[in-house]
Amino acid sequence: MIEFTDVHKWFGSLHVLNDISLTVTKGEVVVVCGRSGSGKSTLIRCINGLEPFQKGRLVVDGFDLGSSSVRLRELRMEVGFVFQSFNLYPHKTALENVTIAPIHVRGLSKAEAEVRGRALLEKVGLGDRMQNYPHQLSGGQQQRVAIARSLCMQPKIMLFDEPTSALDPEMINEVLEVMVSLAREGMTMMVVTHEMGFARKVADRVIFMDRGAIVETADPETFFTAAKSERTRDFLSKVLHH
């Protein structure tokens, strides 16, 4: 589904992605962790074309992102993206946030989109909040609307860029629960997060990045108990301490 081959990216002289090769298959849940500035957000932002890269090959659901003729819009219809800062549309209600793209991008009728949207908002536990505007919702609620908004496009892949980092601690779990159930339903997911509990529970693979490179790739069990790299163990000792 997602295939990186020797991908490089530079911001000026800064080498933000260094020789990334990585394959994610259908239904796989991959957690990406690493210090801030290690390139993990950049990595998943490349997957839906929010960031360009300069060298290498990246194919997502059959779309070759390196080619200049890539139809980014069609790709993005198949790839959901959840942002750290939610980025809900402030002038739209929760339900409108969820239905606007299916209506205008997928061409669904308003009624069809609303049936789908209501079901998804129910699913993320916000059945009673459909008519609220984002500013009337808590952070955790906003992020759940954002997840429903992505799901309403019925994507094949879901990308999460630190979805719980902007949340107060007591709201993290309500968002993680939604993500866990999504993972268990077989969604192909790449999740940038520091929530190691989530990684343990549902990840098929955990990736550790440092200075733009993938340093370690392992199943969660091995990753947390027998990481090969010194840098991974050092990182883990810091994030698992609390």
Binding site: N48, L50, R73, E74, R76, M77, V79, G80, F81, F83, N87, L88, Y89, I100, A101, H104, V105, R149, S150, M153
Partner: peptide, 10 residues
């Protein structure tokens, strides 16, 4: 906002 809209395929 523009990123979210772009990511949705608008």
């Amino acid at each position: 906002q523009k990123e979210a809209a772009a990511a949705s395929g608008f």
